[in-house]
Design a protein around this nucleic acid. Structure first.
Lengths: 149, 149
DNA sequence: TGGAAGAAGTTGAGAGTTCAAGTAAGATGG
DNA sequence: CCATCTTACTTGAACTCTCAACTTCTTCCA
């Protein structure tokens, strides 16, 4: 017995899909066009830039950047080719790699950030009220709560 | 002068990104695993199934399925290989193609739907209150309003 | 009428993502 | 102490998506 979506749920669901896909695509296009990187790479650079020593273990980086290990591994390989990230082996646990943000990587991130923030504002925050932003935060927290399923 | 995100906006933004990516990935994984199709293909089949005569012009289909023309073109090519969709030329305007859902395609959609709806419930509606669902609908409508930018 | 402009759709190449499998190294426990 | 389990990460292949041409056809208008 499938419990189908009622009309309201259907509308909500489709609006959510359309909205989130639109935002994703806007951001990806903006970053690709203006800074030559996909949004996933930008997210990796951001998280690295915030880490102590601008370095992080691959698996931890994958977690905070909402990435699978495989995706991260491929991405860091590309970022390494550009000289934006460097990998270093971990002496304490030789299974572990550290990903380190280089100065060039930091510079690329700094150059990309203003345009990206502008896109985030235009596609999200300029379109909703502060109250709605609060609601959205609570809704997203609920969606993310309890990582099972 | 870049207007950066304040702490609240930052938190909201990251939660939104994480939540929407998580839902997308859950759905994609579920459909791929249980029905052998990505979510984008499922969306195409759904829209076709709702159209009169289960047929739609490619460009209209692209719009309602939140797809670019190019993406749709590639996708329909794959769906055609599986026998789920058929293309027909339009006599009235010979630039136009009709995409037509076949009986096999309809059957594949019907087989996939229950599992998909279950995933939608588990990843979204089971996690938020009815009031939050209403809020979310309004927020997404605001995000989608006025297609400029 | 005849071109320019625009619309519909396709195509190929390049890039990113996923999945499954594989390597290597640290933990566990009889 | 050594076999097994688990963790960390990588790799390659298959697949999807994007972007920029490109073709074909229609519309516009001078």
């Amino acid at each position: 017995m499938t419990r189908w979506l009622d009309e309201n749920e259907q509308r909500t669901w489709r609006a959510f899909l359309a909205a989130s896909q639109r935002i994703q695509e806007d951001l990806d296009r903006q970053l690709q066009r203006d800074s030559g990187m996909p949004h996933a790479y930008y997210a990796i650079l951001v998280r690295l830039s915030e880490a102590p020593g601008r370095r992080m273990r691959m698996s931890e980086l994958a977690t905070v950047a909402n990435s699978s290990q495989s995706r991260l591994s491929h991405a860091v390989a590309r970022l390494e080719e550009r000289g934006w990230v460097r990998r270093e082996p971990c002496p304490a646990d030789r299974r572990v790699s550290w990903a380190v943000l280089t100065d060039e990587g930091f510079a690329a991130l700094a150059a990309a950030a203003p345009g990206h923030v502008g896109a985030v504002r235009r596609s999200l925050f300029d379109r909703i009220s502060p109250g709605q932003a609060e609601q959205l935060a609570a809704i997203c927290a609920a969606i993310l709560r309890d990582p099972d399923s």
